[in-house]
Amino acid sequence: MTILRPTFLRLRAMSLRILPGHAWGKVRALGPTAQGLGLVLAVLAVVGPVLPVAIFVLLILFMIYATWAYSINLITGMTGYVSFGHVVFVGTGGYALGYGVKVWNIAPFAGVALGGVLGAVLALVIGVVTLRLRGAYFAIATLVTPLAAFYIVSGTPALGDGSGLPMNLGFQIGSQYYTIWALLAAEVALTWWVTRGRLGLGIRALREDEDAARAVGISVSRVKLILYILSGGFAGAAGAVFAWYVSGVFPDSFNLLFSLTMLAMIIIGGMGTVLGPMLGAVIVLIPHQILIRILPQGEPIAIGVSVILIALFLPGGIVGTIRQYVPDARRYFE
């Protein structure tokens, strides 16, 4: 029982005792995963600005990736619908910000909001048609959307033809940091909420067997569509932050490798869990920063091998596997 209790949990417990009694009781009732993620997010919010700029900048990128991981988790993790084309929302969000900033002169925050809205609307349009398809058919239908989007933006003069929309927004890392922090925090809270209680039970049932879920009164189509819209909205908003971060948006924002990275993060971390996407983002992104200088292909190969092994032998990912084999640790993931 004690082996898996990290010391930071105890430290946190002490530091939070300064809260009034009833508030502490509420925090305790959230469960260890929510407490841990809440603590991580709180620490990120507080210590971010005092970190060296190099690390601060990396943290922005990390949070962008984590937001994407939670985003694809909302649909693929929760319902089992493998979305190979999730990057279409990333590129759409990026182009929304790019176009808004360049043509309408809107503030980047507004661009992020616009990216989120457009991502959600696009998810609604794609989802209405494709969420009726199952398994590989859904994967294929979503796979073609970023490919088509790539060609469309490459051939649209208003979107810079093939050369994209470079921007000159200056060095705004503080605003970027807190924007993506707010998105990530909101998304983690949302993920936590939809895995709880009755709604969480309903979503698990849907993932297990869609027909049976319908037969016991779950509004399967609506639940799937709402999750997909939320997922597209967050991916779009984070895609807009990414365009802001790299000061431009290019057709390569629709590169399928982004989709595959997102998917790899939740497969490795644990699909449909609250902690999994965060773990997956850490595991995928940290070696990325180290290996990219030594052997750029080493990291995707390592990710690919991990995805193969996990899919074939440990389908629950890290979180699911620990839950299964270390029952004592289970409550830390609830």
């Binding site: 089992g80 493998v82 190979f84 398994g135 590989a136 994967a139 595959l260 998917l263 790899a264 497969i267 292909q297 995707p300 190969i301 990710i303 690919g304 091998v305 991990s306 995805v307 193969i308 899919a311 074939l312 389908p315």
Partner: peptide, 16 residues
């Protein structure tokens, strides 16, 4: 779904 995901990992390996 299992094979879709596993072969997707293979694709990542082979491209790189």
């Amino acid at each position: 779904l299992v094979t879709l995901v596993a072969t997707f990992g293979l694709s990542l390996v082979l491209v790189n």
